[in-house]
């Protein structure tokens, strides 16, 4: 699999590695997918990178590759900003080859990472018709998670037709941030758009939402989909090739 802009792949890994330290990559002719839960089984991530999004892609037989995302992140940090990236696994090999090429082809770096034997569990994620779908700048969402974490461990997300409100309370007191729906969309990237069938009020752990925000550099906009008694879906699109979707179980009355 070859990417002209290897930084896209580095951003994917940075977006996942804190939530899941290691994961099984499923490779097929259609592309690369990954599904993994965090160690406490509170959140789940689902990654799709379609073959047509790569500069070139070939997969002769389906493969499951157990990879340490922490190690891969370290290797990808050595990559230059404008480097292209090729990922290769040879038949019957117990390692993955990560090759980087500088833009003017005067530097070539190759790394081999040992594959891991991982127990992987695959959950079925149903198609959900969410009560609310919010789109907002991903930088804004990161900021809100950071700001709410000052006040408490949990954030209550409430939606109305007018907007969306995030609130948190704790020993210090409480705080809230309300975003109003953008009425005059000039720049789509900066817009706050709320599609609502029913109002929702759901509580989530800020710590996990903040981890999801590690994937924010992938896309200028984040999608939050919410329904009562259903895990939140937080989606970052990967330009032209797929998405990273995070699912987070809500906090419920004890």
């Amino acid at each position: 699999a070859r990417l002209l802009h290897g930084s896209i792949f580095a951003k994917v890994i940075e977006g996942l590695r804190e939530l899941v330290n290691e994961a099984t990559w499923e490779c097929s002719g259609n592309g690369i997918t990954l599904q993994a839960m965090d160690s406490s089984h509170v959140a789940l991530v689902s990654l799709v990178m379609r073959s047509e999004g790569f500069e070139s892609y070939r997969c002769d037989r389906n493969m499951s590759l157990g990879i340490s995302l922490v190690s891969m992140s370290k290797v990808l940090k050595t990559m230059g900003k404008d480097d292209s990236l090729t990922i290769r696994v040879n038949d019957d090999s117990d390692s993955i080859i990560i090759a980087m090429e500088s833009q003017n082809q005067d530097k070539f770096a190759d790394y081999e990472l040992r594959l891991m034997d991982l127990d992987s569990e695959h959950l079925g994620i149903p198609d959900t018709d969410y009560s609310c779908a919010i789109k907002m700048p991903s930088s804004e969402f990161s900021r809100i998670c950071r700001d709410m974490s000052i006040m408490g461990d949990s954030v209550l997300i409430c939606t109305t037709k007018e907007g969306v409100k995030f609130s948190a309370k704790g020993d210090l007191g409480q705080g809230s941030i309300r975003l109003v729906q953008t009425t005059n969309i000039e720049k789509e990237e900066e817009a706050v758009i709320i599609e609502m069938k029913e109002a929702v009020a759901l509580t989530f752990a800020v710590r996990y939402l903040s981890m999801f925000c590690k994937a924010a550099p992938l896309s200028p906009q984040v999608g939050l989909s919410l329904s009562e008694d259903t895990p939140l879906m937080c989606e970052f699109k990967i330009a032209e090739m797929g998405h990273v979707r995070f699912y987070l179980a809500p906090k419920i009355e004890d």
Binding site: H41, V42, L123, G124, T203, T230, L248, A249, K251
Partner: peptide
């Protein structure tokens, strides 16, 4: 009080 639910509770049966 609220407690953190498990993601498996929502997805594993589908």
């Amino acid at each position: 009080g609220k407690r953190q639910d498990n993601i498996r509770a929502y997805f594993e049966n589908f």
